[in-house]
Write a protein that binds this DNA or RNA. Structure first.
Length: 458
RNA sequence: GGCGACGUGGCCGAGUGGUUUAGGCAGGGGCCUGCAAAGCCCCGUACGUGGGUUCGAUUCCCACCGUCGCCUCCA
């Protein structure tokens, strides 16, 4: 069984499942007011890998990830650009999915939008008001965190220090600096929903509680997100659930930062790189490889150099695929359903992944298998090579890394040149054959000689 | 200020109280090749500094230095 670090306990412990054979997981999605950035790319890749691995082990996974389509940033952008919040959200949600597709991230089983769940949120807030754990102020409804048992569980630091560091609000209507808005009262020109406690819109922390509990039910298995969501976002989700008396996520997973030039990439620093830009220049699989190469809780440095390095590594995998003409494995991969794999490699892989997703070593294993496969090929042991190649494809696939080669359409003229080169080589006219090779290379082709003659790929 | 993480060979990046090595990229040498490319083999002999524990520490403890983070919007 998978052992996974749990932020709530600070320990690596078995992921307990509410229903045998089934995993319910909720991962906080994006607020769609701008292009996705590298941090979004990392968390989606990390949890995509986790999801795929669970599937690879034969578990039935229900993966829910939301789209926050109403919030201050969206409103600000809509106002600035003179269009509706709906338009802004739709535009960037489209960008989001385009980027996800390029990364090879599986679509969630459900993608709740905040605006679709406002009725449920209002009911939840009403319930919290009725039970006296929430209170109204002139600008909304707040949760009284002092009534929440174990508040600060995820923050992992003393409440005192949280209070000390909390921003002092201009209006002192909040009973404690730690209390947070469940509902934000409408200001002029802002979109609003009618509610018994005044027109307004839901606070950020409210939506994920309502959506996760609605779609996955009480006491679902796993809640994930970036490390920055640990506190206050996840803390406050949990607080609401506790205040409602409903069991919440049983396990919390958080991935580490994306660093840029040694600093955390963040809003306040303004050192964002958009994922859209990266994916326009690089193979989406390269970013996945980069993410797999580090442990998911460690920070990663994403630069043009580390991406280029990953792309070259990818080349080694693709070269094997090309050499063996390996067929792509159906995605996602279920290891138990594939015949002809190397049992020892599978066993090692599972051992590594079960230990809090040791993808760096799992990836190392895949590369070792690549070397073995190449050796077997060189030795003419096609049977062994076939087994190793299939294992490489399956294991990489279990982490969402699709191995293959670009099936570039080669135009007739180029094919004719390749054929002419083969004739020249057969006639030992190396001046002519090298001339053609240079011409092909200048056109961007990588030229390799194989027993079947000139082989071309980009 | 409070709390925490990290510091590994040219680069990225795992891991471990002591035997043989993570892995990738880059570099050098060799095999293969008409020459290349791809592939294979070999090579550099690393663990921030100073103490301590130990028969033995890169791995445990302490201090120090350095980097980074959380306590505020953020994935």
């Amino acid at each position: 069984m998978l052992n996974l670090h749990d932020t709530a306990t600070g320990q690596v412990r078995p992921l307990a499942l509410r229903d045998e054979g089934k995993v319910s997981m909720y991962v906080c999605g994006p607020t769609v007011y701008d292009l996705p950035h590298l941090g979004h790319g990392r968390f989606t890749l990390v949890f995509d890998v986790l999801r795929r691995y669970l599937i690879a082990r034969g578990l039935e996974v229900t993966y829910v990830s939301n789209i926050t389509d109403i919030d201050d940033n969206i409103i600000a952008k809509a106002l600035k650009e003179g269009r509706s919040e709906t338009e802004v959200a739709a535009e960037f949600e489209a960008e989001w999915w385009a980027a996800m597709d390029r990364l090879g991230v599986l679509r969630p089983d459900a993608t709740p939008h905040a605006t679709e769940f406002v009725t449920g949120m209002i009911a939840t807030i009403n319930e919290l008001l009725d039970s006296g754990v929430a209170y109204r102020t002139s600008d909304g409804v707040y949760l009284d965190t002092s009534t929440v048992e174990g508040y600060g569980l995820l923050a992992g630091q003393p409440l005192e220090s949280l209070r000390a560091g909390a921003r002092i609000e201009a209006d002192e209507e909040k009973r404690s600096p730690l209390d947070f808005a469940l509902w934000k009262a409408a200001k002029p020109e802002e979109p609003a929903w009618e509610a018994p406690f005044g027109a307004g819109r839901p606070g950020w922390h409210t939506e994920c509680v309502v959506m996760s509990l609605s779609l996955l039910g009480d006491g679902f298995d796993l809640h994930g997100g970036g490390l920055d969501l640990k506190f206050p976002h996840h803390e406050n989700e949990r607080a609401q659930s506790v205040a409602l008396g409903r069991p919440f996520a049983q396990h919390w997973a958080h991935n580490g930062w994306v660093m840029v030039d040694g600093e955390k990439m963040s809003k306040s620093l303004g050192n964002f790189t958009s994922l859209t830009d990266l994916l326009a220049k690089a193979d989406g699989r390269a970013y996945r490889l980069l993410v797999l190469r580090s442990h998911y809780r460690a920070p990663i440095e994403v630069t043009t150099d580390t991406i280029a390095d990953a792309e070259r590594g990818l080349g080694r995998l693709d070269t094997l695929a090309r050499r063996m003409d390996l067929a792509a494995t159906p995605s996602p991969v279920v290891l138990g359903e594939i015949d002809g794999l190397d049992p020892q490699a599978i066993e090692r892989f599972v051992e590594l992944m079960d230990d809090d997703l040791q993808t760096p070593q799992a990836l190392g294993l895949v590369f070792e298998l690549v070397g073995e496969a190449n050796t077997a090929l060189d030795a003419g042991d096609d049977e062994r090579a076939g087994q190793l190649g299939a294992t490489v494809v399956a294991l990489a696939g279990a982490m969402g890394l699709e191995i293959g080669w670009s099936t570039d359409e080669i135009d007739v003229a180029t094919l004719a040149l390749a054929a002419e080169r083969d004739e020249a080589r057969a006639a030992k006219d190396f001046v002519r054959s090298d001339e053609i090779r240079e011409q092909l290379q200048a056109a961007g082709w990588v030229v390799e000689d194989t027993p079947e003659g000139t082989s071309l790929h980009r």
